[in-house]
């Protein structure tokens, strides 16, 4: 089995450089959520040089929109959406400080290059295990774009989120390695 790392946010250059595609991660600490429209808005503000509603320096962003929380629960079910829809914005956000991205599915070359250049990391969360991941969320709060409903930017406190390194800072790509092993 590949390495299993127990990691606490914020992710740093050092932490990211120690991760390899295929490593298992249990991630704890504070992260933010954001997906399609939130990315579009953040990128537009960055392009205009305007202030962002959330600081991106050293942040880890989870491409996710949970189900509503039932009374008495911190959050509903939560899991990753497919990441390629954020590819157009991800390099810009990494340049602005994002260190970690959590999602599922392939990234394009521009994103993979930016991960190497910015010494960042792309972590895969499993799709379709959102009830299990819900139990790893200890606190959840909407911090921006509440008008987007489930797609608002939230701050989450997580404990031992089960993740896999997909793209590492050395250019490793688990998805490509997985397929090439078969050929």
């Amino acid at each position: 089995m590949e390495h299993t790392h127990t990691i606490h946010t914020p992710l740093t250059e050092d932490i990211c450089e120690g991760l390899r595609a295929g490593d298992r991660i249990l991630l704890s600490g504070s992260i933010i959520t954001g997906r399609d429209t939130a990315h579009k808005r953040l990128a537009a503000l960055l392009a205009d040089g305007k202030e962002l509603p959330v600081k991106l320096e050293g942040e880890t962003i989870f491409y996710a929109a949970p189900t509503p929380a039932r009374p008495g629960r911190v959050i509903g079910s939560i899991g990753p959406t497919t990441s390629y829809r954020m590819d157009a914005f991800a390099p810009l956000l990494m340049e602005a400080g994002i260190r970690g991205m959590i999602g599922k599915g392939k990234r394009n070359d521009a994103v993979r290059d930016a991960i190497v250049r910015c010494k960042a990391v792309y972590l895969g969360a499993m799709g379709g295990i959102a009830a299990l991941m819900s139990a790893c969320v200890k606190k959840a709060e909407v911090i921006a774009y509440a008008d987007l409903g489930p797609e608002a930017i939230m701050r989450l406190e997580i404990e031992e989120f089960p993740l896999i390194v997909i793209n590492d800072s050395k250019g490793g790509d688990l998805y490509e390695e997985a397929v090439s092993r078969r050929v």
Partner: peptide
């Protein structure tokens, strides 16, 4: 294994299996 574990939690706790309902 995680997928099977998730199905059990979802059923026991009446939680959506996936956030994309």
């Amino acid at each position: 294994e995680k997928i099977l574990e998730n199905a059990k939690i979802a059923k026991d706790d009446s939680l959506p299996l996936c956030q994309d309902t």
